[in-house]
């Protein structure tokens, strides 16, 4: 204690406090405190009880506690938890950044596909206002439809027809009975003229670059397949007699057309007939080239 503290202590010693405790207050407060203690549920449990509880908790081990004391199990569990956490985190992040897939509008339409009688039936139906024959129905996308005009020999017989591009996106047609083109012997032009039971018509004028590549006979049919190509694009011309006993039926034509164009982009079909023959022109060339070729065949046939 330094001098200042000693001086102050001397000063304090000169002061007499009235600080004698009043025992009556002490006793009264004691009674109040005991009353408060009595109102409480009870004082703290004995420390021995805490010790007993601690000892029990230390000795008690649950099944999982015993399991995870194994270092190998603990390591495996930790690694599995780590992998699960990473996967969950990755999925949540990818889901967060995933853009919603825009809904593709259904732009397909059901159209009546008149192939059985081609132009004749359509023209007859329209002219006579008869009940139309039962059409073959198929669903095609509007993007696949290229043209709606059907060629005729004379303008008054020109009727709407169907020209569509490639296979329908809504339709799978791979018929088991689809006719197969002979991959065997190819015919020369003179051989084709001799073997055909009808007068073969060739286009007198071809689009520049195109030339006749092969002529084949379709097995089991009175039909000829003439393949024109410019080295890149190909155009197939099918000719068959209308009165042929083994001509291509409408279903055959349709299925074959779809079959040939499967997987190609920009394929198109032109179909028409004259008095003796039915023509089908299939190719992945430009539509204008196909139309030129079809008009050339029709014009050449009339001159003959």
């Amino acid at each position: 204690m330094n001098d200042k503290e000693k001086q102050f202590e001397e000063f304090v010693r000169t002061i007499k406090f009235d600080d004698t405790p009043d025992h009556s207050h002490r006793d009264k407060l004691e009674q109040d405190l005991l009353a408060v203690l009595g109102k409480q549920e009870g004082l703290e449990p004995s420390p021995l009880m805490y010790e007993k509880l601690k000892t029990r908790m230390k000795t008690y081990k649950s099944f999982w506690g015993k399991t995870f004391t194994n270092p190998l199990v603990r390591k495996v569990a930790f690694q599995l938890t780590e992998v699960a956490a990473i996967v969950a985190l990755t999925l949540s992040i990818s889901h967060w950044f995933l853009k919603p897939v825009p809904e593709i509008p259904d732009d397909s339409a059901t159209i009546n596909f008149y192939l059985k009688e081609h132009q004749g039936v359509i023209a007859q139906t329209v002219a006579l206002n008869l009940s139309p024959p039962q059409p073959a129905r198929m669903r095609v996308s509007r993007h696949d439809i290229l043209y709606y005009e059907f060629f005729g020999e004379r303008p008054e017989f020109t009727r709407p027809g169907i020209i569509f591009r490639g296979p329908s996106s809504q339709r799978k047609v791979i018929p088991p009975e689809a006719p197969a083109i002979s991959n065997g012997q190819t015919l020369t032009l003179s051989q084709a003229r001799k073997t055909a039971n009808f007068h073969l018509v060739l286009p007198p004028r071809l689009h520049p670059g195109y030339m006749l590549d092969k002529i084949r006979r379709i097995e089991g049919r009175d039909s000829l397949h003439l393949l024109y190509t410019d080295g890149i694009n190909t155009v197939s011309l099918f000719e068959q007699p209308l009165d042929g006993e083994h001509g291509l039926g409408a279903q055959d034509f349709r299925e074959y057309a779809v079959y040939r164009n499967k997987g190609q982009v920009g394929g198109a079909i032109l179909a028409w007939r004259d008095d003796a023959l039915s023509y089908v022109l299939i190719g992945n060339a430009e539509m204008s080239q196909l139309m030129d070729m079809a008009q050339s065949i029709s014009a050449g046939n009339e001159r003959e």
Partner: peptide
């Protein structure tokens, strides 16, 4: 903690 008399 357990005995009121001891607390007193």
């Amino acid at each position: 903690r357990t005995d009121p008399a001891a607390f007193a």
